[in-house]
């Protein structure tokens, strides 16, 4: 759906300071119909890259190529694109309905269709009860929901979201994740940034990991898991002695010991424990989380 090609961006805080690289030759591709999580710690360069994609700031080098199916020029491409910035900002003197109406009109959604879309998305994001209130009276979570609704009014083919789940309570996060899943099921391409790995792991197929302005990983989440960490086993035993074959071990309050063992040493460890008179009360496959892998890659 779009491709980032060797994007680099440097910033200079003031005239005398040295320029620092916010992005360093970042390249990746987001394919049609994919839901891609854009991961990175605070200050990794996620928002800078999203601003470059949206044309708010210019890159020093590289380019952003949108799929021709989205349109030939920026006007056509943006007609098919829904964007939610990090901490969306609104005109506080407008009501929620006026704001959505204004945003819809900018996307050439008018009349009965606009009214229908406003009501539909306001209901989905549970802000329908507050639509006629001034935006200045909205809570942070409500603003996030209103911003999300405004990004979907024109039924975009691609949705780009900058930290869409920040500022939401657990219920709100779940609701928004459900909306993202449902949009993905409808065939929309979704690219969203987050610094919370578990959110991305829960709803995304693919991930782009940025660290210090450099691309750390790009690809499917299952690939990253297979590529970077060998899955280990968790073995629970009543055996109290020390065993060299265990990767790590931890004593539980009930006297049992949980040992982490690599697949190669699993059989040997079980045999050794049994030989020493111990018994095995549990053996489970330890699937690493994306969060653990991302931390491992960083380190």
């Amino acid at each position: 759906m779009f491709e980032i090609q060797n994007i680099s961006k440097t910033f200079q805080v003031d005239f005398w300071s040295k320029r620092f690289a916010a992005l360093d030759s970042v390249s990746f591709k987001v394919r049609p119909g994919e839901i891609v999580g854009f991961l990175g710690a605070n200050g990794a360069g996620k928002t800078t890259l999203l601003k470059i994609i949206m044309g708010f700031i210019k890159s020093d080098a590289g380019s952003v190529q949108f799929d021709p199916s989205l349109g030939k020029n920026q006007r056509e491409i943006f007609s098919n694109l829904g964007y939610l910035p990090e901490r969306p900002y609104f005109y506080p003197h407008l009501s929620g309905r006026d704001f959505l109406s204004y945003m819809g009109q900018l996307n050439n959604v008018v009349g009965a269709e606009l009214a229908q879309q406003i009501n539909k998305w306001a209901k989905v994001f549970s802000v329908d009860h507050a639509l006629d209130r001034k935006v200045r009276g909205y809570s942070k979570g409500m603003l996030q929901r209103l911003g999300f609704a405004s990004a979907l009014l024109h039924d975009p083919k691609i949705i780009i979201l900058d930290e869409p789940l920040s500022g939401l309570d657990p219920r709100g996060r779940k609701e928004l994740k459900d909306v993202l899943k449902s949009l993905h099921a409808q065939g929309k391409t979704i690219f969203f940034s987050s610094h919370i790995v578990s959110d991305v792991e829960e709803i995304c197929q693919s991930v782009v990991v940025l660290e210090g302005g450099k691309l750390l990983f790009e690809g499917s989440i299952s690939n990253i898991i297979q590529e970077h960490i060998k899955p280990n086993y968790l073995l629970t035993t009543d055996y109290q002695g020390s065993v060299d074959l265990a990767f790590s071990s931890e004593k539980l309050p009930d006297g049992q010991t949980v040992m982490e063992v690599t697949p190669e040493n699993k059989e040997k460890l079980i045999n050794e424990i049994i030989k020493c008179g111990g018994s095995i009360s549990g053996l489970s496959y330890l699937k690493p989380t994306l969060e653990e892998i991302v931390y491992n890659i960083r380190s």
């Binding site: 949206m54 044309g55 943006f78 007609s79 910035p85 969306p88 900002y89 609104f90 945003m103 900018l106």
Partner: peptide, 14 residues
């Protein structure tokens, strides 16, 4: 400064 411009310029508005 208030970044309301992002909400507008992310739409088909030059």
């Amino acid at each position: 400064e208030s970044r309301t411009v992002y909400m507008i310029l992310s739409r088909p508005v030059s």
